[in-house]
């Protein structure tokens, strides 16, 4: 938790130093065009805050089952007749409170360094955050199957998060990246979620204007959920054999 807050704050402090002390607020015209004239610090803080939410949701959901496996409680879990989705929903509820704390810490630091977060406490912003958390949750389920399959958490999670930092447009507009990477970035729900979050928070756009982004998030969530569920069902059969056998 400390490390996630530190990471989130780092993602704000570095641009702050670069922007204020080094470059003295001298942005180029492309940035204004890509970001629709948004304030730089607000732009960065919003990206970083949502990224913290994504990382902690993915971590906690993705690692849930493999932690059970490592601690030896997975067999007991598999023997119970509980519905699997209920287990994951429980994990989600438990971790969302913690994740929101981290989110709050990062946005508070962001407000201190001069980000304009006036629209944070609106129904729209809350709806976007909920939608974003849901999509990270779906991705987390797919991730949990991947982690169970590879029996590895450290390499998988760090590679995923570092890639997401690079391609999802958290610290800078996506348009600066090469075209190939821009397309690749669209498979992460974080990419549309960040631009939706920014549209709502900076320009106070209504949700109906951003239908396309919302549909993309919903579609991606559906795909990840499907992959995760099917993969997990297959793996459960094998897991039973490999654990009990």
């Amino acid at each position: 938790m400390v490390s996630r807050i530190v990471t989130g704050v780092t993602q704000i402090i570095f641009p702050y130093f670069m922007y204020h002390y080094y470059i003295h607020g001298n942005l180029n015209s492309e940035f204004h065009e890509y970001a629709n004239g948004a304030d730089y610090m607000t732009y960065v803080v919003l990206g970083s805050a949502l990224n913290v939410l994504a990382v902690s949701t993915l971590m906690n959901i993705g690692r849930a089952l493999i932690t059970e496996l490592r601690e030896g409680t997975l067999e007991t879990l598999l023997m119970t007749p509980m519905p699997r989705y209920a287990y994951f929903c429980g994990c989600l509820l438990e971790q969302t409170a913690r994740a929101l704390l981290e989110f709050g810490a990062v946005t508070a630091v962001g407000a201190l360094v001069g980000a304009d977060l006036g629209y944070l406490f609106s129904v729209r912003a809350a709806a976007v955050i909920l939608l974003a958390v849901f999509s990270f949750f779906c991705m987390g389920i797919a991730l949990s199957s991947l982690m169970l399959y590879t029996r590895d958490t450290y390499l998988t999670q760090n590679t995923l998060f570092i890639t997401m930092n690079l391609v999802c447009g958290i610290m800078y507009p996506l348009q600066y990246l090469p075209a190939g990477l821009q397309y690749a970035a669209q498979i992460f729900p974080l990419t549309p979620a960040v631009s939706l979050f920014r549209n709502v928070m900076i320009e106070n756009q209504s949700l109906s204007v951003n239908q396309l982004l919302i549909w993309q998030i919903v579609l991606l969530s559906g795909v990840y959920l499907l992959i995760g569920t099917v993969w997990y069902k297959k793996m459960e059969l094998k897991l039973v054999e490999s654990i009990f056998g």
């Binding site: 670069m18 942005l27 940035f31 730089y40 690079l166 507009p173």
Partner: peptide, 8 residues
């Protein structure tokens, strides 16, 4: 490197 891109 890309974080420097918005700067003039």
């Amino acid at each position: 490197y890309y974080a420097y891109k918005p700067f003039e």
